[in-house]
Design a protein around this nucleic acid. Sequence first.
DNA 1: GTCTATAGTACGATAGAC
DNA 2: GTCTATCGTACTATAGAC
Lengths: 216, 216
Amino acid sequence: MAPTDPRDTKERLIDAAESLFGDRGIAAVSVRDITARAEANIAAVNYHFGSKDALFLAVLKRRMEPLNAERLRLLDIVEETAGGEPPALEEILSAFVEPTFRVFRSNPDFMKFVGQLHHECGSLADSLLATSRFGELIARLRIALLRALPGSQPASSWWGMNFLMGAMIHTWMGGHEIEAISGGEAVYGSDEIMVERLTKFAAAGLRAIADVGEEE
Amino acid sequence: MAPTDPRDTKERLIDAAESLFGDRGIAAVSVRDITARAEANIAAVNYHFGSKDALFLAVLKRRMEPLNAERLRLLDIVEETAGGEPPALEEILSAFVEPTFRVFRSNPDFMKFVGQLHHECGSLADSLLATSRFGELIARLRIALLRALPGSQPASSWWGMNFLMGAMIHTWMGGHEIEAISGGEAVYGSDEIMVERLTKFAAAGLRAIADVGEEE
DNA sequence: GTCTATAGTACGATAGAC
DNA sequence: GTCTATCGTACTATAGAC
């Protein structure tokens, strides 16, 4: 029987894998799950990608490359607009956060997949760092944060970035949960408001911990 | 051959499961992995617990029950000490955060396991909410936050709690990662400093988003 | 490029000897 | 309480027909 989705098998496999990886994690999804969802034959993953791991990398690269390129582009704009001055903390963080919520709106499964990846500690997590200019992005972000927080402890901005990443990942993965726990009081609302919440939260947090750990 | 660990098989199984669940997630760990690590027979999990799921619940309850009881106790103390006034935001958050870092020092695998649990969306995640007074803890925390942030948007404190949970989970699970990425600049340091960083970060963040989403 | 069939392995769980 | 042996199932990957 012909699949209901008209796109070619290779693309349907990436879509199916993205969706399942985001929902259940990478290790917990079988090739059979993926081919069933994609309405493809069991052998299709191996034919088109060679292995489950290679399919995983294809899923990661398809959206991560344009996503990180966009974040770097926004960082450029923020710094150019500010002239020689250090830009406001909120604007720097927004360049890092906002594009992910744009992807989240159109492809929530992908951002959940990235969240899963951050917490599946094995060798797979390293592929995130090695892929799609992620290391370059972190380095640029770090320099911008240090300029925006003159005199702060070097460790503080690292831990602040760590907290922001955690808050972001948890929001991608658990937004629904909070809506349920709160009995409807915490509504996701628009992306704009969520980005505003996250960037204001992290900017104020970074300023508050700038001197934690300082010698007396 | 006798196991090298002198404790009884049941306890060794819980220890082994906790450690493996924290490292790799729950779904990715097999009963065989657990019994091998515990130096027990393959049939031991079924004999002592009945199933892998029942062992999972035993791992969760063993430390989660005393942990949440301690968080509720600290919340009581913070509120009593403040008399009728609302306590400072930092102190409320510390009651929620500090005990987890005490457990993290002695049993890092357990807190990583809890982090894994929060992000493995299936039916297992619900067991966290249903276990060990977690719902009660969240409700108490929420009321305290609202009193400490008078006039704030109801949704804001929910999202702030969500961000704090994410930052905390990511720190349990990825502390090592940040130390590596930072090239040694972000050292974990003492629990006291990490708790101080997290509570100051979240308190300032909560104040900063208190009025986000307000009608004009 | 898509299918069937299957090799080879690992899984959770249980029965029954000791 | 611990062992061996095994059932029934699911897994990744591949070979070979069409």
